[in-house]
Amino acid sequence: MATPIKTLKEIPREELFTPGHRLCAGCGIPQLVRMVLKAIPGPKVIVNATGCLEVATTIYPYTSWKVPWVHNAFENVAATAAGIEAAFKALEKKRGVKRPKIIALAGDGGTFDIGLQALSGALERGHDMIFICYDNEAYMNTGIQRSGATPRGAATTTTPAGSVVPGKIERKKDLMGIAISHGVRYAATMNPAYPVDMYNKIVKAASVEGPTVLHYFCPCPTGWRFDTAKSIEVSRLAVQTRYWPLYEYEDGTYRINVVVRNPRPLEDFLKLQGRFAHLLRPENKHILEQLKRDVEENWNRLMKLAGLS
């Protein structure tokens, strides 16, 4: 496997994702896509579920992609990727065609909810592919509806914060846990404010034979209601408050990549975002406390798994 990079200067210059796409100003998805296309050299196929990325980068007759790219529905991106992988395996056997890297990209809707069954099937069958979820914690493309990835307390258009219900009352699903319990050899979380870490994780995922899962924190100025300039700042705070632990699972071992010894108060992350504004009011203290417990429990669980506590 390639040696991990240490500086931004080592990231290749070539851009296989062009500007001219219609993603919102300040969107957090392209930082992921650019890094994926840079970190995985050679032939590759992108399989894209329905979602912001698909809709905004391929408005006919325009495309931002300079690599083979195929769209399928919310529910079957992993099945499509699996089929492409199987077809290339057959071509490799029969005609000696070099197999490209198969990369599935889906939002949280296409991963946590609608696409989960196809993902589970593909992971269980063991297809050689990288599945990447860009998680902006709600259905942003269709109008900010709550998903299984929306955190407790967040206001969305289907869980508006009112006087009776203070935003979403349920806890966020554990996607990494779901992936790992399928027996994948490699899974990792990523964050745009940590580009070197992200680059190395993509390289690692691509070097593993079989399915791997990458879970990317995707800031969304439109859906989370913050200033477009703050996308990376919000992302960094997600790590510094332990809201989004950066960790990886590799052949049975857990490693926390950024061990946050002295976390910033969770409020520092919440107060920048309109979706959490109501949590800072005294009448919603109980849900804020619950969200803090979610974050703390998750961190303590990971520290234990990583053998650090």
Binding site: T18, P19, G20, R22, S64
Partner: peptide, 26 residues
């Protein structure tokens, strides 16, 4: 792009020019 008649349209929306979004200035 010149508008196509329905006879000229591909069976599925296939874009054969990689990175054509460069022509769309944001």
């Amino acid at each position: 792009v010149r508008p196509l008649s329905w006879r000229e349209l591909p069976a599925a929306p296939v874009i054969t020019e990689a990175g054509s979004a460069l022509r769309y200035k944001t």
